[in-house]
C-alpha cells in the first residue's frame, strides 16, 4: 500500500442539527485539495475582475 496522498489537504464542512428528542446530530463532509484549488482559482479570477470559467454562461 502506497502513502502517496500524504500532502492532500481536507477542508472540513460541519453541519450541526438537533434530533426531535434534542440529541445532537452532526454531518461531516469534506473538500479535498482539488476542490479547494479549483475554488481558489475561481476566487482569484473573480478578484481580478475576470469572469470565472463556468459561471454566467
Amino acid at each position: 500500500m502506497n502513502n502517496n496522498d500524504k500532502n492532500v489537504r481536507h477542508n472540513m464542512i460541519k453541519r450541526v442539527e438537533a434530533k426531535d428528542d434534542g440529541r445532537v446530530l452532526i454531518y461531516y463532509t469534506f473538500e479535498s485539495s482539488d476542490d479547494i484549488e479549483h475554488k481558489e482559482s475561481l476566487r482569484k479570477e473573480t478578484d481580478k475582475g475576470a469572469q470565472p470559467k463556468g459561471l454566467g454562461d
Binding site: R23, V24, L25, I26, Y27, Y28
Partner: peptide
C-alpha cells in the same frame, strides 16, 4: 433510522 438523510460521508450523533 438515526440518520434522516438518504446518504452521508460521516455522521456523529449522541447515543440513544
Amino acid at each position: 433510522t438515526e440518520i434522516p438523510e438518504p446518504d452521508y460521508d460521516f455522521v456523529v450523533f449522541e447515543n440513544k
